[in-house]
Design a protein around this nucleic acid. Sequence first.
DNA 1: CTCACATATTCGGATCTGTGAATATGTGAC
DNA 2: GTCACATATTCACAGATCCGAATATGTGAG
Lengths: 107, 107
Amino acid sequence: MTLPTIEELNLLHATICQAVGDPRRMQILYALHAQSRNVTAISECLDIPQPTVSRHLAVLKNSGLVTAERDGRSVIYRLVDERIIGVADTMRDILRDSLERQSDILE
Amino acid sequence: MTLPTIEELNLLHATICQAVGDPRRMQILYALHAQSRNVTAISECLDIPQPTVSRHLAVLKNSGLVTAERDGRSVIYRLVDERIIGVADTMRDILRDSLERQSDILE
DNA sequence: CTCACATATTCGGATCTGTGAATATGTGAC
DNA sequence: GTCACATATTCACAGATCCGAATATGTGAG
């Protein structure tokens, strides 16, 4: 893997990083990982207002991480690339180890 | 891996995600991955003003991803957890595939 | 102690992002 | 067409973040 240019990093930031860079969006990604859902279902299972969910989904769709498919009156959102969950899980591991390291130092 | 709570995601966002969520910070992470360096060296090799580098390093240090160790007059910054580079690389892969998918659709 | 190098911090301003509330658009049932 | 459900969008505002420029702090050489 070659070193990324600043232009590539800018694009990465404008898409994938921005998508992952919000707690609620990550919550939505995990919810879609468990099961594809429509907006109302996401709104209810995460207890987030519907307009907020729609806005977050627009960001996720723009990043290419999810797709939208109309099904009758509702729109089903699907996670396109499951690797993003692996990314999130690894970040959680890193954070967990970092916190552990800090508490070790305090002792 | 269990589902993250919104509290855990908030903490994750305030640390790891925030650290990765800036193009220049990611550039610094890659630079430190290649070799541990002091502030001036980073500033010069990435062509970023020194105060800006210092500020970004403070964020990265706060996230627990890098450590600072004084060595004489300079301070050497080191990447603590190399897994973050894997995370960044995977995100680049995801973006690349996403762009490819989009260009396929246009044809 | 003084000077020069190395790093960190403060300040003001511009920009971005998320949110709730309200509203608009789209879709199917009847 | 009309109504109800489903989703998307607009608006104003609050908060966060980034930056360049200037300045402050810290450290070692002499």
